[in-house]
């Protein structure tokens, strides 16, 4: 009896989260007439795969995809390169101003993006970086969340390991690369996944920092496409599916990392 109740609750909740997304897939395969039919179509008569081709014909969707991959990919690589390095320094080194710098770093956690939005726009305009990849990428190269996550992960690694390598004459960079980095793989996986998914989905900055359709990322390109063709819901849905598929695939294969990552740090 109690079990039945619990299952009912979970099934209903899951239906509420998943059915709208399934409807989005269905909508992307409907004819325009079906999207408007008085009797709402839930499963299209014959799936209109051509909708996807039409989307690419009406908007530079190929550009959107490439832009999203370049921007999210570059930012993810930067995080994987810098966050563990900085985390390692704060976990294992003693140096002047260490605590001051660490507090200054953690303080940036309290600064939401909208605070940086206007000055970054002016900065990028002055440098001629608006509507460029470097303009989209540089504001997100590192963040305190990632550095803090890596610091927490590196701290328990025994100092003896580092000191032994030093006695063996290994350079500091080599110690980092061959002693520290290999031990951080699970944390790097979490960091990489979260960074990629959040940057892939990022909306506000690409909206502010791009001005031509060719430079838009998928979320922005799709939203502005919808403003232009607001009756062509089957095409907007097709674009949404394209935006969602990579994160969905990533999630299916790595959901344990996602769950652990959220539980571990409460990222975002």
């Amino acid at each position: 009896m109690r079990k039945a109740l619990l299952y009912t609750l979970l099934v209903i909740a899951s239906l509420i989260t998943v059915v709208p997304l399934l409807y989005m897939v269905s909508l992307s395969l409907q004819t325009e007439a079906e999207t408007l039919a008085a009797n709402a179509v839930l499963v299209p008569d014959s799936p209109q795969w051509g909708n996807y081709a039409e989307l690419f014909a009406r908007a530079p969707f190929g550009n959107f995809i490439v832009n999203s991959l370049v921007v999210a990919g570059a930012i993810t690589l930067a995080h994987l390169l810098f966050d563990p390095l900085v985390g390692y320094v704060f976990a294992k080194f003693r140096f002047p101003l260490r605590n001051t710098l660490f507090v200054a770093l953690l303080a940036t956690l309290m600064v939401p993006f909208f605070v940086r939005m206007i000055p970054l726009y002016v900065l990028m305009a002055n440098m001629g970086w608006l509507n460029t990849y470097q303009g989209l990428i540089t504001p997100f190269l590192m963040d305190a969340f990632g550095i803090f996550l890596m610091r927490q992960f590196i701290q328990p690694i025994p100092d003896d390991l580092i000191n032994a390598a030093r006695i063996d004459g290994a350079s500091e960079l080599r110690i980092y690369r061959s002693v520290i980095l290999p031990q951080t793989r699970p944390a790097l996986a979490v960091l990489g996944l979260f960074t990629f998914v959040f940057q892939w989905n990022e909306f506000l900055w690409p909206l502010v920092a791009t001005s031509t359709p060719e430079m838009r990322t998928i979320p922005v390109g799709l939203t502005l496409f919808n403003q232009e063709y607001f009756t062509l819901w089957h095409l907007t849905a097709a674009g949404s599916v394209i935006l969602f598929v990579p994160t969905a695939i990533l999630f299916i294969f790595t959901q344990r990392y996602f769950v652990r990552g959220i539980a571990l740090t409460g990222l975002r």
Binding site: N201, P219, V220, L243
Partner: peptide, 9 residues
């Protein structure tokens, strides 16, 4: 699953 979608979607 919805947590992984963009606010655009």
């Amino acid at each position: 699953v919805p947590y992984l979608t963009s606010v655009a979607i």
